[in-house]
Amino acid sequence: MRRSVLAAIAVLVSVGAGIAADDPIKARKELMEANGKTTKAVVPMMKGQAKFDLAAVQAALNAYIAAAEKAPALFPVGSEKGGKTEALPAIWMNKSDFEARFVKLGTESKAALAAIKDEASFQANYGPVLKNCGGCHELYRAKEK
């Protein structure tokens, strides 16, 4: 039983890695879209129009932390082409800055996770985490056509 579970996980992991390696453009698009959905769910709370939900906020922050760890591998050299992508060539010209920004997103998400206990600390700490999205999109995402 245990062996088959492990085998199943191994298969899933290799499939996951396979997707990342074979089609990083698709994989990173899905990751970014998931980030958008995560954020969209929190927006009404930020605007004070939905009840503050600590568990939902923590889940969102954990999703950012996971995404920040996964993302750099989804921009391998060579994936600036080969599909419809909004990722700009500047990513591969400034790889260390680009990757440092994901580290910063992860670090700040973890700090917010520790700091947010109630609605007031949520309002104070959540917005600054999201500044990381725009900071990266400013430099590394193509503008609307």
Binding site: N35, G36, K37, T38, T39, K40, A41, V42, V43, M46, K47, G127, L130, K131, C133, G134, G135, H137, E138, R141, K143
Partner: peptide
Amino acid sequence: ELALTTGITPEGDSLGGAMAE
């Protein structure tokens, strides 16, 4: 108001390009 202060759109996307500045 949220977009102008945090850059986040109602869709959960973020404003990029010159709007980030």
